[in-house]
């Protein structure tokens, strides 16, 4: 290669190791497969886990979309996209979900449904949902193996006793295929149901914590809840009980970000910028 960098930056041994771990992650849904997590030319915590998965997967015929909090233009997404473009000559990049074969995302699952021929890679800061109740990783691994999540359920119960509500806003613990509970990365509750019976393969990469896990397509994914306290997503109703709309595209179904505009007024707009733009294009014909 002319610039002296191997295609997709990682050497072939590193890719093979990630590939072996990734296959095991698909075979054991929700289990955090350890891997070596190579040093990347950016700090851990900037999406190196997701990046390594993307680099192990990507080929010259792929079309890549990178988003951060739903936006293609925020700094984390732009930097990761530039890095992948630089090290993977021949690939195409896009902001339109429908054109992408590979999607790397931080903190959101795209608003529109994924297709079976797409793969979603999520960047994960904290892969283990049990870390809030058990500090020892050795013990957590045994608890996961035995599907022993009683202490996590007690934590949720304590929330209900104290606040009448499970207070987890993002990283909502979700049980995969009736066994392992995963931290689904900091996606909002709104996105959690999209893990269930997804058409696309969803992969999770934690670079600093050196873990890879997966939710295969058409797999059971149940957010933790109680019979009498069902799981619920964010409520975007205003004081009159009416669903707030995006100020740009008018969507009343999308996940909204809250802003204070220059006049000091509270406004709402879609968090997924690609979806919002497509809605506006539709409206203007």
């Amino acid at each position: 290669m002319s610039n002296g960098i191997n295609f997709a930056f990682l050497d072939e041994y590193a890719k093979r190791e990630i590939r072996r771990s990734l296959i095991k992650a698909i075979c054991i849904p929700g289990y955090q497969v350890p891997y070596s997590s190579r040093e990347m030319p950016m700090g851990r915590g900037f999406g190196t886990g997701g990046l390594q998965l993307t680099l192990a997967l990507i080929g010259a015929d792929d079309t890549l979309k990178v988003i951060d909090q739903g936006s293609d233009d925020s700094v984390n997404a732009v930097n990761l996209r530039k890095f992948i473009e630089m090290t993977c000559p021949g690939i195409a990049t896009t902001t339109r979900l429908q054109e992408a074969t590979l999607i790397q995302s931080r903190h959101r699952i795209p608003e529109q449904a994924l297709r079976a021929d797409q793969i979603l890679v999520l960047q994960v800061p904290y892969p283990d949902a049990l870390v809030i109740v058990e500090p020892s990783e050795d013990k957590r691994k045994i608890m996961h193996g035995e599907a022993d999540y009683s202490r996590l359920l007690v934590k949720l119960y304590e929330d209900i006793v104290k606040f009448d509500e499970i207070t987890i806003s993002h990283r909502y613990p979700t049980r995969i295929n009736g066994h392992y509970i995963i931290d689904p990365s900091p996606i909002p509750r709104y996105d959690v149901p999209k893990l269930h019976n997804s058409k696309a393969l969803i992969l999770f990469g934690a670079g600093r914590e050196k873990k890879i896990y997966a939710v295969p397509p058409h797999c059971l994914a149940e957010p933790l809840a109680f019979d009498d306290v069902p799981f619920r997503i964010e409520d975007f109703s205003d004081s009159h009980g009416e669903r707030r709309a995006c100020k740009l595209c008018g969507s009343k179904t999308s996940f909204l970000d809250e802003f204070i505009d220059e006049q000091g007024v509270r406004v709402y707009q879609c968090s997924d910028s690609d979806y919002c733009e497509q809605q506006q294009e539709c409206a203007h014909g």
Binding site: N6, F7, A8, E12, K15, R16, R19, L22, I23, I26, C27, A56, L57, I58, G59, A60, I119, L201, P216, P217
Partner: peptide
């Protein structure tokens, strides 16, 4: 060759995702 192995790996991912 790396090009084959990348394409074959995607094939494997697809195969394991859809038994």
């Amino acid at each position: 060759q790396p090009e084959f192995q990348q394409a074959a790996f995607r094939c494997l991912v697809e195969a394991y995702s859809r038994p």
